[in-house]
Design a protein around this nucleic acid. Structure first.
Length: 260
DNA sequence: CTGGGGAAGGGGCCC
DNA sequence: CGGGCCCCTTCCCCA
């Protein structure tokens, strides 16, 4: 399964209102000191995972829609209950930087916080975010005039905007190269996140335990482990899981196999 | 075998 | 229009 199925349009235009997700039972975990994670606006976000938002197995099938490739219409994925995301909104604009894919280290100094190990600055590692040549993707107004299609010359994908296409092309050109190991990434923040694997930087710490993570998303996943009620719930036995994959395994290996 | 952590990919939205 | 940032999801590996 290609990870590209990323069909996420759940909140199209509307960021999840985490405040509404306020968990009721998991108060303890509800709000992680995301201040740490980000700028700190999280107070309101109340990240809660769960409570009321447990995912029912029944929805899984949809969530996994392999149809992917791009069927945004699909189903809404798990509303991330826990996500501190909201903070992100503020964070991003605050000038924090995302480090990595989704993580904004509390550190005031973004990428440059690598101190001694800061061997790669994003700036230096991205020689050509948008190589001229690649940009020349084939723009072909294939579809209706109202919806021009921009085709990727590297793969069959097509986009309705040049910007989207260019962004996609990065996944082929991988302009962000790690100077440490040479690994290339499509996005600067992916590279930043990767760099953390070299530096060992883990700006996102769990308020409930001493663990720290380099990636915010991973912290979120981890927070689920502290939750009494996890996001993903088996529709049959009501057991909850911190990860959809676990729920899937659970369902496929027994409990719900017959039922669902 | 299950649960959890680490790392990475990509689309969408906002500035 | 482009760049940056956010979030979500998946895969792999380990305990």
């Amino acid at each position: 399964m290609p990870r590209s199925f990323l069909v996420k349009k759940y909140f199209a235009k509307q960021k999840p209102n985490y405040s509404e997700l306020e968990c009721q039972n998991d108060t303890s975990l509800e709000r992680y000191p995301f201040a740490e994670l980000t700028s700190g606006d999280n107070t309101s976000i109340a990240t809660c995972f769960t409570a009321g938002l447990v995912w029912d197995l029944s929805v899984l099938p949809t969530l996994y829609l392999p149809t992917s490739q791009t069927e945004p219409s699909a189903t809404p994925g798990p509303l991330d209950l826990s996500s501190p995301s909201s903070l992100s909104s503020s964070a991003s604009s605050c000038g924090e930087e995302d480090e990595g894919r989704s993580s904004d280290p509390p550190s005031p100094e973004p990428v440059h916080t690598y101190g001694p190990r800061q061997r790669m600055k994003c700036t230096g590692v991205m020689p050509h975010i948008s190589p001229p040549e690649e940009e020349e993707e084939r723009e072909a107004p294939v579809t209706a005039a109202s919806r021009p299609a921009f085709l990727c010359k590297h793969c069959p994908k097509e986009y309705t905007s040049l910007g989207a296409l260019k962004m996609h092309i990065r996944s082929h050109t991988l302009p962000c190269v790690c100077t440490t190991c040479g690994k290339a990434f499509s996005r600067p923040w992916l590279l930043r996140g990767h760099i953390r694997t070299h530096t060992g930087e883990r700006p996102f710490s769990c308020p409930h335990c001493n663990r720290a993570f380099a990636d915010r998303s991973n912290l979120r996943a981890h927070l689920q482990t502290h939750a009494e009620v996890k996001k993903y719930q088996c529709g049959i036995c009501s057991r909850t899981f911190s990860r959809m994959s676990l729920l899937q395994k659970h369902s496929s290996s027994g409990c719900c196999s017959s039922a669902v």
